[in-house]
Design a protein around this nucleic acid. Structure first.
Length: 594
DNA sequence: CAGACTATGAAGAGCATC
DNA sequence: GATGCTCTTCATAGTCTG
């Protein structure tokens, strides 16, 4: 039995042959549905011809969450169908207003129930006088009726729509249902993971995580939305003003304490009941995400307060990141030796050429791209033309560019971007960790990775807790920042199930795994959408559960550097966060069941 | 065609000042 | 608290090149 993916075969997961019919199948490289696909919750603006369809799909989407059709119709009417998030907010508001116990209990499937509608009618039906469910359903196209039927059967809108896409509109519902069951990849729900509860139901209905509970959680979330993170504010008086839906970033951004002052920085944190493991989990993303993103992430991840840390306290480069985890925070210890925290200590050779007017001691965030040669040439010319002491204007120009692009002084009037191996060093990876792939890819992969020392400090508490090693589910593994951190801590990894979309990154991780003579098993998956309940149950039954679920989901749509598609958590890549939650929640369900 | 190269701001935190 | 300024930001799209 070969648990490890075949490097030649590339993307396939050489999972034990189990007759699932996936062998030899092309890997499902991230398959993001188009905005016109039914059930898509992305903001889109379709033409008039498809308006009815998208309207009904949107309706079905929210009905699948457990709201009544009339409520949904009213919410859509009030908001238009373009902004599904606003519609959800309105629905949650309706839900908060309507506190009928019967509705709280809901129907078994979590779908709309007569009581829902009755209560709703009593509350407010002024805008719905001309609206009846019967009429509404009759207006649906045949395809939409099937879609609704499938949704009522417990599938997500997206699954249903995809099945119709695959099998055709004429396919009977039974065939469509079979098709969904057969599909091994989960579809992305880009806004709220509640719709996943339907697909998870085969497991979760045996637990407390029923769809109805999900819906109740949404209601509770809505009511709790105004809650602020008072503790964090109290700890750090100098925090910025925060809105209702915002989590304040601490200043200084030192999380629950640093290696150097952990004794001085005593933090009492009490984890919510639902957050307590097993498994332990650790989630990471950019701290400076658009407003409200971290509040949403925190709500999904069991209302755990994020730990915001700037890696400039661990190395010579800033890296402001938020971490949500359920790890203990006492008795942490850092990796040794502690890396240098200034540019000159990290790269002494640059000191010779460093002008006195460049007062930088640390780098800004190491990103995925570097400055162009034209820019460094423009800087060189500007400096040459201005003689020994550049004018304040030139200095300002040069400093701005140096800060923006993390340039270092490598000669007289000569600046240059950091080399990939220098970035590896700053991020705590072994030298040549990414060597062998293209230079551009090295920058990209490194720019997207953990700062190892920072993460290792947080994970260090696992060492004493798991003296015999642990089993890790590593989501969005990238070049293996989590694995490197554990390895450098001396934590044995009995098994790592790694999920990473990029073949280049998988190769980097696999190569490192082999080179470091790991005695554990590395099992690779390509796409988080492959990781469904069947797979997880197999893995958990084989390895006895996961001790740690770790990963940082894509930040593309959250990062400030993104000029084009900083769409927040709904963005094409960043919405994969919901897969992190989905998978983590599934693991908790399955392990809780066992 | 892969890889290298280049141009492309807005959002929002932090700070000083009033 | 309001205002204005400075500074920072795990990037994307298009083009060029060998």
């Amino acid at each position: 039995m070969d648990w490890v993916s075949d490097s030649d075969g590339g993307d396939e997961v050489d999972w034990e042959s189990d007759g699932e019919g996936e062998e030899g199948q092309a890997p499902p490289i991230r398959d993001v549905p188009s905005s016109s696909e039914a059930g898509s919750s992305k903001k889109d603006s379709e033409g008039g011809a498809s308006k009815s369809r998208s309207n009904s799909n949107l309706t079905a989407h929210f009905v699948a969450m457990g709201f009544s059709e009339k409520m949904v119709a009213k919410a859509i009417k009030g908001n238009g169908e373009g902004d599904s998030e606003a519609i959800l907010e309105l629905l949650l508001t309706y839900g908060a207003i309507d506190k009928s116990p019967s509705q709280e209990e809901g129907s078994p499937a979590g779908c709309s129930s007569p009581s829902d509608d009755d209560n709703w009618d009593e509350d407010d039906n002024s805008d719905l006088d001309d609206f009846e469910d019967k009429d509404f359903v009759e207006e649906l196209a045949e395809k939409d009726k099937k879609l609704l039927t499938l949704v009522e059967m417990g599938f997500t809108t997206k699954e249903a729509a995809s099945a119709i896409e695959r099998c055709g509109q004429d396919a009977p519902v039974s065939e469509l249902a079979d098709s969904i069951y057969a599909a091994q990849t989960a579809e992305t729900d880009s806004i709220y993971a509640a719709s996943w509860s339907a697909q998870d139901e085969p497991f979760c209905r045996f637990t407390s995580f029923s769809r109805d509970n999900k819906r109740r959680k949404f209601m509770e979330d809505s009511n709790n939305k105004r809650r602020r993170y008072i503790d964090q504010k109290n700890r750090n008086k100098n925090v910025s003003h925060n809105d209702d839906d915002m989590i304040a970033l601490p200043n200084p951004m030192i999380g629950f304490g640093l290696p150097t002052n952990s004794m001085m920085h005593v933090v009492n944190r009490r984890l919510p009941e639902a957050a307590i493991g097993p498994p332990y989990f650790y989630y990471e993303n950019v701290a400076l995400a658009p407003k409200g993103v971290w509040a949403t992430i925190s709500r999904f991840l069991y209302d755990i307060e994020p730990e915001f840390v700037d890696s400039k306290y661990f190395c010579a480069a800033a890296r402001k990141r938020g971490y949500i985890h359920n790890l203990p925070i006492e008795n942490r210890f850092p990796l040794l030796p502690m890396p240098p925290k200034t540019i000159h200590e990290a790269f002494p050779l640059t000191k010779k050429w460093w002008p006195s007017w460049d007062h930088r001691t640390q780098f800004n965030c190491l990103q995925t791209c570097i400055a162009s040669a034209k820019l460094t040439e423009r800087i060189r010319r500007a400096l040459i033309e201005s003689g020994d002491l550049p004018s304040p204007r030139v200095q300002q120009y040069v400093l701005n560019e140096c800060r923006k692009w993390n340039l270092v002084w490598v000669g007289l009037n000569k600046v240059a971007p950091l080399e990939p191996d220098e970035i590896e060093y700053l991020l705590g990876f072994p030298r040549n960790h990414t060597r062998g792939i293209s230079r551009t890819e090295r920058y990209r992969s490194l720019g997207n990775s953990f700062q190892v020392d920072t993460v290792a400090y947080h994970l260090s508490v696992l060492k004493d807790m798991f003296p015999n090693g642990l089993t890790v589910l590593s989501l969005f593994s990238g070049i293996g920042g989590a694995e490197v951190a554990l390895h450098r801590l001396g934590v044995h990894m009995k098994t790592v199930v790694s999920v990473e979309i990029s073949e280049i990154n998988r190769n980097v991780l696999r190569s490192w795994w082999e080179q470091t003579n790991q005695t554990g098993k590395l099992i690779e998956f390509v796409d988080v959408q492959q990781v469904n309940s069947d797979r997880l149950e197999q893995l958990i039954s084989t390895f006895g559960g996961f001790d740690l679920v770790i990963g940082g989901s894509p930040c593309n749509n959250l990062a400030g550097s993104n000029r084009h598609s900083r769409d927040g958590l709904e963005g094409e890549q960043s919405a994969l966060f919901y897969h992190y939650f989905r998978i983590l929640d599934l693991v908790k369900c399955i392990m809780g069941k066992n």
